[in-house]
Design a protein around this nucleic acid. Structure first.
Lengths: 214, 214
DNA sequence: TAGATTGTTAATCGATTAACAATC
DNA sequence: TAGATTGTTAATCGATTAACAATC
């Protein structure tokens, strides 16, 4: 499934979109597609699609195009969706609860195993059959359970100290919803979801085109 | 506050981060900063920082650097955070409720005015003093109220039809949390938050570096 | 075989970084 | 004034697009 040379983040961030569009083609019982047709749907150029896919292998066939099922499957593997991940959520406020309830991540192999919060009013409450634990138990939980991805949903000022605990226990993947940039060693991967940055980008663009006049 | 020539999205997506770091400097009573010092904190090169800021004006001073308060204020204006926006949420499920409860958007000028859902069990419930309305009332609400930004939090299959209503009523800004790409006219701005794409990028990177072995 | 479409190289475009004169 | 640091131009780097030979 692999060629060499480092894959750029620009390419990586397009992969989930390929995965999504191919999944949709599958649901519509379309079993082959050319880079040109895919381009028309997904909005990347055909040339870019072929370049992107060729980073990972020769999935197409001249004169034919790509087999949808096969390509979807390959991209799943490239994204690591053929594996299972144990996840935990730290912070059971608005965002934490929303993510906890987002059960559709399960189908991609992400299994929520535990939820932590420091608010005594939340500790003990169950979300999707998982009882919220006191965050003081986070360390000992990590000593006794394999966790692949930790999801940080605590307020900004607590995020770094939570990250420090996670790192000290060997967690290598952090999905960070706190509006701050976490300091972690190089071998720990952070994926940020900065909602206010996204919203600010939207307001910038509204004003830029003079679409917004008060 | 402006120079000419179109600003690239690469620059635009860095602006909220400048805003955030400058806000932090302000809170720490630091009143001037050089591009070099800011570079050390924010992680962009000093050269890039100067280039970015110069897209919008000459905010610095040779030999001195930048005045933190002034620059923060300028970037606020550039991002349109000096204005007020009426927002509505369509879809009061997990994500919709989480965003509705996220009151910190208010301080940037984003005011939640209405929430819609089609589930009769949710209609009538109040979130932050706002009563969830039946989505059938969306059209007439838009006829009678000025809305600047609509936040789509409905399931994938309903997202496009909601977007169609919004567009037909003249909404120009959509913050889309549904895992799909919406079709809208060129003058409507869409900002997507695709959580599963973000999570898949994380799992890709975990596997890429062989940090994840099952 | 002829037509279609890939994989891949080369050309272009855009974004980042380096360098330095201008100037506070 | 001398030192610091900007604004801005030029150089480099990387990503996208175009082109086309290879081949199914």
């Amino acid at each position: 499934m692999s060629k060499d040379t480092r894959i750029s983040m620009a390419v990586v961030r397009r992969l989930p979109k390929y995965h999504r569009y191919l999944g949709e083609l599958l649901r519509n019982d379309i079993d082959r597609i050319s880079s040109k047709e895919l381009s028309d749907r997904i909005g990347f150029t055909a040339s870019q699609i072929r370049q992107d896919l060729n980073c990972f292998g020769d999935f197409g066939q001249q004169g034919y195009g790509y087999n949808v099922k096969e390509l979807h499957n390959e991209i799943s593997k490239i994204l690591g969706l053929d594996k299972q991940y144990n996840t935990i959520i730290i912070g059971a406020g608005n965002i934490g609860q929303a993510v906890a309830n987002y059960s559709s991540f399960e189908k991609y192999g992400f299994h929520l195993k535990a939820i932590f919060d420091k608010n005594p009013k939340l500790v003990g409450i169950k979300i999707r059959d998982i009882e919220i634990q006191d965050v003081d138990e986070l360390s000992s939980y990590l000593d006794n359970n394999k966790v692949d991805i930790a999801i940080i949903c605590v307020p900004r000022l607590h995020a770094q100290s939570v990250a420090d605990i996670l790192v000290s226990k060997g967690i290598k993947g952090i999905w960070n919803f706190a509006p701050t940039d976490l300091q972690v060693p190089d071998d720990v991967i952070i994926e940020n979801v900065h909602l206010s940055e996204s919203l600010m980008t939207l307001s910038y663009r509204l004003n830029e085109r003079n679409l917004f006049e008060d």
